[in-house]
């Protein structure tokens, strides 16, 4: 209990009041056991609802969000940012699909060229022979004339 007892010059009222609260203190000492038990139960209940623990959970949540924010930007987390992030991810996905499709085309083109070369009667080494190439080009010029 924290009765005020350190006043330098207590007034008559203060002294009277102090005497009265000393008497009142006895009333709390002699409370029936069922009431003190109920009070203890209420205290337990109140402690279970202490704000501190809810705050601790919120702080943990905020900490995680801040950590993610550190990686992706401080404004990560708001609804607007989520839309922006979704848009960016969509654009990235489209670009990835386009690049994949282009690579596939290139591979298919090379494969078709290779198969054409391999199915030809002419051996592939003939195509890199300079004499054969000049003969082909002169032959083509003759045909045009």
């Amino acid at each position: 209990m924290t009765h005020e007892t350190h006043r330098p010059t207590p007034s008559q009222d203060d002294l009277l009041a102090k005497a009265m609260v000393n008497v009142l203190d006895q009333s709390t000492d002699s409370l029936p056991s069922q009431i003190t038990a109920r009070l203890a139960q209420m205290r337990e209940q109140a402690l279970a609802h202490q704000k501190q623990w809810q705050s601790a959970l919120q702080l943990a949540g905020q900490g995680t969000q801040r950590a993610i924010g550190g990686l992706f930007g401080d404004s990560f987390g708001s609804a607007t940012d989520w839309r922006r992030w979704a848009g960016s991810l969509g654009a990235l996905a489209v670009a990835a699909i386009f690049m994949f499709w282009q690579a596939q085309n290139q591979v298919e083109q090379l494969a078709s060229e290779d198969s054409a070369l391999l199915s030809e009667v002419l051996p592939p080494t003939a195509l890199i022979d300079k004499g054969f190439q000049s003969w082909i080009s002169s032959d083509t010029l003759d045909d045009q004339q």
């Binding site: 009431i35 009070l39 209420m42 205290r43 209940q45 402690l47 202490q50 704000k51």
Partner: peptide, 18 residues
């Protein structure tokens, strides 16, 4: 009186426990 004290304790813990 007990109900009042219970309400007061809960309000204190829930709103000002930190």
């Amino acid at each position: 009186a007990l109900d009042i004290v219970q309400d007061a304790m809960l309000k204190l813990a829930e709103s000002y426990g930190d």
